[in-house]
Design a protein around this nucleic acid. Sequence first.
DNA 1: CAATAGATCATCT
DNA 2: GATGATCTATTGC
Length: 183
Amino acid sequence: MPVPFSQVEALLALPRDFYERPTIEVARDLLGKTLIHRRRAGRIVEVEAYLSEQDRAAHAWSGRTRRTEVLYGPGGYCYVYLVYGMYHCLNVVAETAGSPGCVLVRALEPLCGIETKPPCNGPGRLTRALGIDLRQYGADLTAGPLTVRDALRPLTEIVQTGTRIGIRHATDWPLRFWLASPT
DNA sequence: CAATAGATCATCT
DNA sequence: GATGATCTATTGC
């Protein structure tokens, strides 16, 4: 593995304050941060922001239901759901209680514990690579086996912005952010 | 290459 | 009963 686990384990988890801000800021700031599940870790390189009831593409668009319940709680918790019957998607709840913003984590750069045979870019492959499923629904990302921690190293890439992928509504909103090497 | 179909199930109507 | 914030395999140029 490129990075020993002890090195990512030493990173500090992001505090609740980090998440309880506008969703778009949280999305951009998550880039470069370290996602750890048990002994597997990756560097976040692509995310998408999903806003509240105004965002037709967001699950919260149809209001508060059993599935979206965690989105209405405080920030810093994990929102996982199953798409197309076989893939899980990992989201980070943003904003304070009552405001259902969240950030979909779309791609990781493997750091340790991850078999890179199947790449871990794409929300479905990412959760499979980390071993995440519906059991982590509602998990606290500031403590426990599933955490988001500080960046391992400063950003050397630039943040690019574009439209979200794989959705049927609000397809032209520039809410997708990813890291790219400077040209 | 690009386009498309199929897998498969929790959640919502 | 319909619908996906997906991915893979397969078909057709």
